[in-house]
């Protein structure tokens, strides 16, 4: 009986393996080995910052589609771009290093509260009831962007989100997540930035916040490079033109801003660095 069962299993196993062996030869699918190699070179965070569903679909597109550039991976930066370019035979390009930026200075502004939100701890859920702050363009502070960040580059402190510039890869997940649209991707080298996203007119802003941008247009008029514009109620800065103009203007826009909400980024970057000391502890407290 033992012999019989042994033989049966042996025979069955052999038959199955024979079928699979033949099948693997007959049904083999030709796969471009470069896709695998490119995938290997990518960080594998599947953050979606490149605009594709994940690292795998970007790898396939980079190899097969000549129109997809090699430098789309923002998480990997220049190093990854060079590797992907070498593997796919495309120009490496020079992707400008970018970083996510929070356009809100709520803690300095005494933003009026509309109501005390006590529901599910999610900005999107709070936004369903209307923003808890009287300003509809403020940081709600419940951390949707922090949870969306695949790189652990955000933390909550004092009711607002903070970006850890060294960890941020500018994948844009926070930009897509924030229900108040206060996150923006800016070049790391950006010189000035407005810390407010309000699209409201000056009076409406001063009614609810002490810090917000009142769209007075002073910066637009002062900028010698003409790279600041008011679009849809929000100040937009053409960072490429601003950086190209150089430090000659001594950031006259920041100098002349009556609300001091258009700021030199060097200063804010330093303030951010100081705030880094205890991000872990505060993250725990929020969680």
């Amino acid at each position: 009986m033992i012999l019989q069962s042994l033989l049966v299993m042996l025979g069955l196993g052999l038959a199955c393996s024979a079928v699979l062996a033949v099948a693997s030869k007959l049904l083999a699918v030709e796969e471009d080995p470069r896709v695998e190699a490119v995938l290997e070179a990518l960080p594998g965070a599947n953050c979606g910052g490149c605009g594709f569903a994940g690292c795998e679909s970007y790898a396939a597109a980079a190899v097969n589609d000549p129109n997809v550039p090699a430098d789309r991976c923002c998480a990997g930066g220049a190093g990854t771009a060079a590797k992907v370019a070498a593997l796919t035979g495309k120009a490496a390009g020079s992707a400008e290093p970018m970083v996510a930026f929070r356009r809100c200075a709520k803690t300095e502004g005494n933003v009026k509260k509309l109501y005390d939100y006590q529901g599910v701890p999610s900005c999107a859920a709070a936004k369903q009831l209307g923003s808890p702050d009287a300003c509809g363009y403020s940081c709600i502070g419940l951390g949707d962007c922090m949870r969306a960040c695949p790189f652990d580059a955000m933390y909550m402190a004092h009711g607002m989100v903070h970006v850890i510039r060294e960890k941020c890869t500018a994948c844009g997940n926070c930009v897509r997540t924030c229900p108040n649209h206060i996150m923006e991707i800016v070049p790391q080298a950006a010189r000035v930035m407005v810390l407010c996203s309000s699209q409201d007119k000056g009076k409406a802003v001063t009614d609810v916040c002490d810090a917000g941008c009142i769209s007075c247009m002073k910066c637009v008029k002062e900028c010698p490079a003409k790279c600041i514009k008011l679009e849809g109620g929000v100040i937009r800065i053409d960072h490429a033109a601003c950086i190209a103009y150089g430090p000659e203007c001594q950031e006259v826009c920041a100098e002349k801003c009556p609300r001091s909400i258009l700021r030199r980024l060097g200063a804010t970057a330093e303030a951010h660095a100081h705030a880094h000391v205890e991000p872990q502890a505060e993250k725990e407290a929020v969680a």
């Binding site: 079928v19 699979l20 699918v29």
Partner: peptide
């Protein structure tokens, strides 16, 4: 064995 085969077949 069947699942392996089906996987190859579908691919």
């Amino acid at each position: 064995a069947l699942v392996q085969f089906v996987e190859m077949f579908l691919k």
